[in-house]
Design a protein around this nucleic acid. Sequence first.
DNA 1: CGCTCCGTTGAAACGAATCAATGAAGGTGG
DNA 2: CCACCTTCATTGATTCGTTTCAACGGAGCG
Lengths: 259, 259
Amino acid sequence: MRELLPEQSRAGADAANAALLTFKAKTAPRRRGYGKCFPCELLLAEASSEQRADFDAVVDDQDFGHSEVLYRATAPVGTVHFIQMGAVKLLRSGPAGEQRIVRVLKPGDSAGIESVLSHTYEHTAIALGDVRACSIPVALFLKLAAGSGRTQMWLLQKSLTALKEVETWLLQLAGGSIPANVRMARLLLKLRANDEDHIYRLANKEMGDIVGLVPETVCRIISEFGRQGIIAKDDCGSIFSKRYFRGNIQALKKIAENI
Amino acid sequence: MRELLPEQSRAGADAANAALLTFKAKTAPRRRGYGKCFPCELLLAEASSEQRADFDAVVDDQDFGHSEVLYRATAPVGTVHFIQMGAVKLLRSGPAGEQRIVRVLKPGDSAGIESVLSHTYEHTAIALGDVRACSIPVALFLKLAAGSGRTQMWLLQKSLTALKEVETWLLQLAGGSIPANVRMARLLLKLRANDEDHIYRLANKEMGDIVGLVPETVCRIISEFGRQGIIAKDDCGSIFSKRYFRGNIQALKKIAENI
DNA sequence: CGCTCCGTTGAAACGAATCAATGAAGGTGG
DNA sequence: CCACCTTCATTGATTCGTTTCAACGGAGCG
């Protein structure tokens, strides 16, 4: 289980990642232009030409598979990531071993910005499904960001948006006398993909780690929703095999309102 | 109960506040120099002399009494506040009427910065005890902030710190299979005043609104802590009359660890 | 093929919410 | 200054929901 790799294997994994990055930088086709990644565009808008050269030499896209670790909490900050595709869960762990998913990053979000405050990562970041991210060494990122007012403003907006999101989770998803099925309905609505009736499907334990429930309880509630015809496991072959639910959004909203 | 003033009385209250502010600007002794409020210092560091004059004409300190409302959620953003003294609770309300304290601001924190994203307040802000805040009209704040890179950086740091704080609340204080007495012990530790054994005392319902418990349960746990000699109501006369607990920090930490 | 991990379901125990009643405190008006 | 009223703190008895413990089946993987 990659999420719980023991500490001693981390150095090896990091070295492997570094090697992979180097390899890719030399052999893989480079991104064309800077427009592909909005944050990079911002970072470079006010940069000098030699900074652009620096940038071009080390920054590239990076792909991660399902449940692959982008970085680990308490590790020194190495790179800042801008999510371009897929979703990433941010895990925070407490001293007593408790664990909770505090955010889910989607395309346009950034990971590792806590480097502005500290030299170690705050979370463990793990890919949900296939992920593509633009990865920038933290030193370069900080240097470019310091010279770009627009980037700072963008970061501030992103941070405030994240703050709002977490506060909403705290209000709507966290325990506190709100029945478990209501919290689950709200979570499913938040995990909606696009504007259709597809709902991104996480493992029972993962959903439990968000709403504060035990996996068994999550399973019971999901099963009950299924019995009521509110959601169905979307096993329609293809790549969607088991990564999605198909849900009755209106019915879920009804439950989420909690009468 | 001032927190639940009906809507129709708000306009009157706002007008009264505006009148008070004007009055104070004309008659009350002004703050001496800009050094008194760090954020103001930052805002003005790169400002022109006429901007300073503008600033000096409208910005001043404002005092709030216990349970007084600084601003109300969904109201248009009028002023941004920098807390100089006391504590302020930020309440977020959901569509189903659920309510939760999502943050507690302390000196050095800012309130109303969501104005960067939106034109309405995100929270209802209510004073806990006596509060002194530096109040700046949002238009002036945005104008000055746009021209001050250091202010933007400071705001980013503040926002990231708040984000970290809320995530920690989500992890340690929100429901999720963590026993109620452990969550309460953690809350009491977070409400510690200074480095002593004084603990800021909120109403039972307020503490419940943070950890997601019903007031009765909060009372039972506090009573139990009292019976165990872990905390005592600090009724030692003076102004501290009933605003503080006196607690055995080590014992609380023991409980907070949850074995 | 056997291993482990995850999903699923059942029965029982526990903890917190609810309902209800009393007492203390603060504010208002006579 | 006292009586009244509203709000909050406190405690008990009961109910309800979620956790816990346990067992089984299936999927993925070495």
